[in-house]
C-alpha cells in the first residue's frame, strides 16, 4: 500500500519456511560441533553455550553466510533459464578451501545434497538442476542454501540470515537434547544473539555481488575443525556432526 515500487518489502514467508528447523533437509541430525564440545567439557550450561554460539556465528557462521549470499546472487545472475554455474562452482571450490577438516567437508556436502534433493521437489527450478549437474558430488551446504534461496524468490541478505540462523539454532537445539538445558534459557541466548546475527548478515550481503570468490570472508574456528575430526572417529555418537 505504501507503494515504493523500487523497494518492495522483502519476502518473509518463504524465508521463514526455509529457515524453519522443521524444513526437511536433514539438519536436525547435526549438532554443529556441539556434541563434541559437550564431550570435551567445553559446553556445560547456558553460559558456555552462549560463548560457543557466539564463536560459531562469528567464524563458520559468517563464512557460511558470505557464501550463501554470494551463491544466491550468482544464481540470479545467469540467463532466465540457467544460473551462472561458473561462479557457483568457483564459490564451491573457495568454500572447500575454507573447510580444512575432512569430516566437515563431508558433512557440508551431505547437507548440501540433502537440501538440494528436498528443494528439487519442494520448488523445482532450472537453477537447481543446473547446480546438481555442475557439482555431481553435491554442493557445499551454503552454496546450495544460496541457490535454493534464490529459487524461492529470496535475496542474498535473506540467504545469509538463513545461514546464520542455521549456524546457531542447530547447536542450540542439540544442547537442549544433550544437556537437558532449559529450552527457555537456551532461547534467551538466541534472542541475545539476534542483533549480532543481523550484523553478520549485513556484512555477508555487502560482499554478495562484486567481491571475487577468493576474497570472500574466511574466518575459521580451528577448535571446531579438531572437534569434528575427533567426533568422526567416535564409535558411539548421536549426531552426524
Amino acid at each position: 500500500m505504501s507503494g515504493n515500487r523500487s523497494a518492495p518489502a522483502a519476502p518473509t514467508a518463504a524465508l521463514l519456511m526455509l529457515a524453519d528447523g522443521r524444513f526437511p533437509a536433514g539438519g536436525h541430525a547435526h549438532s554443529g560441533g556441539l556434541e563434541a564440545a559437550v564431550a570435551a567439557g567445553r559446553v556445560v550450561d547456558t553460559t558456555t553455550l552462549e560463548a560457543f554460539l557466539r564463536g560459531r556465528a562469528a567464524t563458520s557462521g559468517a563464512t557460511a553466510a558470505a557464501f550463501a549470499a554470494a551463491a544466491c546472487t550468482a544464481a540470479g545472475s545467469g540467463s532466465a533459464k540457467t544460473a551462472d554455474t561458473g561462479r557457483t562452482a568457483e564459490l564451491d571450490t573457495e568454500y572447500e578451501a575454507r573447510t580444512p577438516a575432512p569430516a566437515l567437508r563431508a558433512a557440508s556436502r551431505k547437507l548440501g545434497r540433502q537440501l538440494l534433493r528436498a528443494a528439487r521437489t519442494i520448488r523445482p527450478a532450472p537453477a537447481l538442476d543446473a547446480l546438481a549437474a555442475a557439482l555431481p558430488a553435491g554442493p557445499h551446504q551454503p552454496v546450495a542454501l544460496g541457490t535454493v534461496a534464490h529459487t524461492l524468490g529470496l535475496g542474498p541478505h535473506a540467504a545469509a540470515a538463513a545461514a546464520l540462523h542455521d549456524a546457531v539454532t542447530g547447536p542450540a537445539t542439540a544442547a537442549v537434547r544433550l544437556l537437558g538445558l532449559d529450552p527457555f534459557a537456551v532461547h534467551a541466548v538466541l534472542a541475545r544473539l539476534a542483533p549480532e546475527l543481523d550484523r553478520l548478515a549485513d556484512a555477508a550481503d555487502a560482499h554478495a555481488a562484486g567481491t571475487p570468490a577468493h576474497a570472500l570472508a574466511a574466518p575459521a574456528a580451528p577448535l571446531l575443525d579438531i572437534f569434528a575430526e575427533h567426533h568422526a572417529t567416535w564409535e558411539v555418537r548421536l549426531f552426524a556432526s
Binding site: 539438519g27 536436525h28 541430525a29 540433502q114 544433550l178
Partner: peptide, 17 residues
C-alpha cells in the same frame, strides 16, 4: 544414519538423511 536423538524424526518428519 545418525538421528540426532530423534529416531522418529529421521523416518517421518525429515527423511533426508
Amino acid at each position: 544414519v545418525e538421528t540426532g536423538c530423534c529416531p522418529h524424526t529421521a523416518i517421518r518428519d525429515d527423511i533426508s538423511a
